[in-house]
Write a protein that binds this DNA or RNA. Structure first.
Length: 853
RNA sequence: GCGAGCGUGGCGGAAUCGGUAGACGCACUGGACUUAAAAUCCAGAGAAAGGUAACUUUCGUGGGAGUUCAAGUCUCCCCGCUCGCACCA
């Protein structure tokens, strides 16, 4: 009997319906103690309207893991939801004269259908949308808990203002002086803002990075640098002209004797007070403030300052006087906003000193420099060495001198050891409408009062005017006017909303138990958390991932759950790239509008010649995008999925190519064709009776091993290569004898199972065609039998002086002498030796023979 | 400037324990099938030189040195590309 070809057109839909009907991918509602749990999560999308290739890659990777873990007996949680607050909804609403909520929900509907057409193994019963009051009411409660624990607070501060988005940005969201999304040059603005006390966990967030063994090293490094712990000392300098002191932070207290100036930040309190009576200082400070972040980058080499007419006394030598400057390169936000300059051992200080003719006294000498005439001219010496010109520190190395200097500072009450962090608290206030309202009521008398818990959620008003300038909530005629919950006086609501990273900082816990009455159940969250494998783009390395690590710790402190680390394993996938096309006047052309004729490219619509440009990340602005839907329609989602993982390793950038997609399509068709032509054997193969030297059975079991190990280590591209190899071998098998039929049938069964995480629809189809009633997604992952992997006949290479001359085949039981004899008897070896006696022969059984002459 | 990663055929990439470099795929070439094309199937192929030929020799993992019987893999130096951070005291 020949197995019949299936109806290809409805193949995918058919199996998607079966999975849905069978609830194949529902995670257990309550902890399942019989099975180990496995939580796979892909970064949930912003519902922008349509899925793009980046999503396809991301979700394919996650789906491979989810299906594979399910087959391996895990209780798998694999949910999906929508990061649905955010500015694009407001912009779209303005452009299309609709409401952000309507626009968002329509997009979700479309994208949900698109995702479903990909056959991803999500437990859709746990779907969440963060703009739903049933979601954000819980985070309002969390914020109030944070507020009461002192983890959330309000302060007036200089903030990064994005003039395009007309809102504040956190430091992490400013990249190269520009807004992370708008790309607009960020300005400085003084505003009253809510902050989350991320610095409270700075030490913990830093120390525990090393526990994240399944995270990419570079992401850990980026977080490490972002948190930026610096050990050093605070040193107090007494001002001569008045009864005040200046405190500086330094990592080099060992170089204190080389200090030749003090520099204050332009916005340092002393600078500001001096500016009141000194017009030239005032002008200088204004100039510094005018330089926005990006200009500072451009002018980074120009070290400018102004003398304040103040001097300080050196703490270790009362007879030494040090001038105080205000300098443009000192930041108020870091350390104490003041530094001491030691030009000999800091390049920046040296540049400054040279500009203003300040003394340059070397106090650290390189080890190998024995002469007494050591001088610094225009390159600072920053390495370790021996301390000189430094009284009681002389002769020490840098490390010991730091310690000795701090001891002395403490003894004379002029300083102490201290730690400074680059990490700052997370500013969460945004002056936007489409975000979660901050649940605070501002009362004249009572101050900031949390909204009573039973009044949550504070819902967004529906009737808003997005076209009025400023914050729409603030401009709303009624919404903000309420009575104070404390004293019943008229008061006002906080009209800022949360940064949308707030919602994505806990959504992964909400998925564990999306209950109506609680954010989640503690014991259920403790069962599922942490996420075992998180997959997403590396662009969130310090934004979302750091916020989430902080948030989870804060929730734990408030008793919500027991874990503090949200993501045990992290995989950062590369970007999807594509060829760009341009017309000769430099306009971008969509790939689907390009056709090839006589080795030249032409525009399909106007027929003009088109030129190919660089391969770049797919982006709407360069038009080098391919719509996933058109691919799914034309080839099916399995083709897209196979192609997504077949060519490049997941963490590397990949190039989308039509040829590659067609290759994947042909491969899947080929598998179906082989099954179609396969004859059903009379009985099932008996593995106990097979000659273990049979190379087909060996290949089958080797493939199980290779694909299993490949998935475990995220080398999906290798898995696909191994599946091609197995397919090639199976397709070449004869079906003449009963045994050959049994073997081919068995090989196809294994192939179907191994392919099932990658091309699940085709795997189900094959499984079904082979006569199985079960769903392949419910079938246990195959195990390889070691018996078939070892072979009696060993083939190894024979080298002369490390160069390959041929290879020999011998029986596994052969002794070294026999192998050596066999190698020497090779004619190519004999020819090369020509009677010469080998100097040495190295025989490594099952690896190599190397003859040295 | 500091930090990290990468560099292998025409192309994407294998070879993660130092042991037969180039698996697998794409593109390419030849053949079969076909009136023809597509699809499919079979075969070939790192480069150079030599030979009618089966084949032989040499070179070959960005460049240079080193360790080793043996290096894509380990060490040092250099070049190039990508990413992150950037007046962080």
């Amino acid at each position: 009997m020949i197995i019949k070809m299936s109806d290809k057109k409805n193949l995918e839909k058919k199996w998607q319906e079966r999975w849905e009907k069978n609830l194949s991918f529902s995670a257990s509602k309550k902890p399942d103690e019989k099975k180990p749990k496995y939580y796979v999560l892909e970064m949930f999308p912003y519902p922008s309207g349509n899925i793009h290739m980046g999503h396809v890659r991301n979700y394919t990777l996650g789906d491979v893991v989810a299906r594979y873990k399910k087959a391996n007996g895990f209780n798998v949680l694999h949910p999906m939801g929508w990061d649905s607050f955010g500015l694009p909804a407001e912009n779209a609403a303005k452009d299309n004269n609709t409401h952000p909520e309507k626009w968002t929900n329509e997009n979700i509907k479309t994208m949900r259908e698109q995702l479903k057409s990909m056959g991803l193994s999500y437990d859709w019963s746990r779907e969440i949308s963060t703009c739903d009051p049933q979601y954000y009411k819980f985070e309002q409660k969390m914020f109030i808990d944070f507020f009461q624990k002192g983890l959330a607070y309000k302060k007036e501060s200089w903030v990064n203002w994005d003039p395009v988005e007309k809102t504040v940005l956190a430091n992490e969201q400013v990249i190269d002086g520009k807004g992370w999304r708008s790309n607009a040059v960020v300005e400085k603005k003084l505003l009253n803002q809510w902050f989350l006390k991320m610095t409270h966990y700075a030490d913990d967030l830093l120390k525990t990075i090393e526990n994240l063994v399944n995270w990419p090293e570079r992401v850990k490094l980026m977080q490490n640098n972002w948190i930026g712990k610096s050990l050093g000392a605070n040193v107090i300098f007494k001002i001569i002209q008045k009864d005040e002191t200046i405190e500086v932070f330094t990592t080099r207290p060992d170089t204190l004797f080389g200090a030749s100036f003090i520099a204050l930040a332009p916005s340092h309190p002393i600078s500001l007070s001096l500016s009141k009576n000194n017009p030239s200082i005032d002008i200088f400070i204004n100039e510094c403030n005018k330089n926005s972040t990006s200009e500072a980058v451009i002018e980074k080499n120009e070290k400018k300052g102004i003398y304040t007419n103040l001097d300080v006394i050196h703490p270790f030598d009362k007879s030494t006087k040090i001038p105080v400057y205000i300098a443009n390169f000192v930041l108020m936000e870091y350390g104490t906003g003041a530094i001491f300059g030691c030009p000999a051992h800091d390049q920046r200080d040296l540049d400054f000193a040279n500009n203003y003719n300040l003394p340059v006294l070397p106090v650290v000498k390189p080890r190998n420099h024995n002469k007494n005439d050591y001088e610094i001219t225009d390159t600072a010496f920053t390495d370790n060495g021996t301390i000189i010109n430094s009284s009681f520190l002389n002769g020490l190395n840098v490390k010991d001198a730091k310690k000795r200097a701090i001891d002395e500072l403490e003894k004379i009450n002029s300083g102490r050891s201290s730690i400074t962090w680059r990490l700052r608290d997370w500013g969460v206030s945004r002056q936007r409408y489409w975000g979660c309202p901050i649940p605070i009521i501002k009362c004249k008398d009572c101050g900031d009062v949390p909204v009573p818990i039973d009044e949550l959620p504070v819902e967004l008003p529906k009737d808003i005017n997005l076209n009025s300038p400023g914050n729409p909530l603030d401009a709303h005629p009624k919404w903000k006017f309420v009575d104070c919950p404390n004293c019943n006086q008229p008061a006002e609501r906080e009209t800022d909303t949360f940064d949308t990273f707030f919602e994505s900082s806990w959504y992964f816990i909400r998925f564990t138990d999306p209950d109506i009455n609680n954010p989640f159940n503690k014991s259920i969250a403790d069962y599922w958390m942490p996420v075992d494998q998180y997959i997403g783009g590396v662009e969130h390395a310090v934004l979302h991932l750091l916020y989430s690590r902080f948030f989870t710790r804060a929730l734990r402190e408030c008793g919500y759950l027991s874990v503090s680390e949200p993501f045990k394993g992290l995989m950062t996938q590369g970007m999807v790239c594509h060829q760009t096309f341009k017309t000769d006047d430099g306009k971008w052309v969509f790939p689907h509008n390009v056709e090839k004729k006589n080795n030249k490219l032409y525009h399909t619509i106007n027929g003009s010649e088109v030129f190919s440009g660089r391969i770049e990340k797919m982006s709407k602005s360069k038009k080098n995008v391919v719509d996933p839907l058109s691919i799914v329609k034309k080839y099916g989602s399995d083709t897209a999925r196979i192609f997504m993982v077949s060519d490049s390793p997941p963490e590397r950038d990949m190039e989308w190519s039509t040829a590659g997609v067609e290759g994947s399509y042909k491969f899947l068709n080929r598998v179906l064709r082989i099954v179609n032509e396969c004859q059903k054997p009379k009985k099932y193969i008996n593995l106990d009776l097979i000659d273990k030297e049979n190379n087909v059975i060996r290949k089958i079991h080797q493939s199980i091993k290779d694909v299993t190990e490949g998935i475990d280590s995220f080398r999906f591209n290798v898995c696909i290569a191994k599946l091609y190899e197995l397919t090639n071998m199976i397709s070449k098998l004869d079906s003449k004898t009963d045994f050959e039929k049994e073997l081919k049938f068995y090989g196809l069964e294994i192939l179907a199972q191994l392919i099932s995480p990658f091309a699940p629809h085709h795997a189900e189809e094959v499984w079904n065609l082979l006569g199985h009633e079960t769903l392949i997604c419910d079938v246990e992952w195959p195990k390889f039998d070691k018996r078939f992997l070892s072979t009696e006949q060993i083939s190894i290479g024979v080298q002369i002086n490390g160069k390959l001359k041929g290879n020999i085949v011998y029986n596994k039981t052969a002794e070294k002498e026999e192998i050596q004899k066999l190698a020497l008897s090779l004619s190519s070896v004999k020819n090369r030796l020509g009677g010469e006696k080998p100097k040495k022969i190295i025989v490594v059984p099952e690896r190599i023979v190397n003859i040295v002459v």
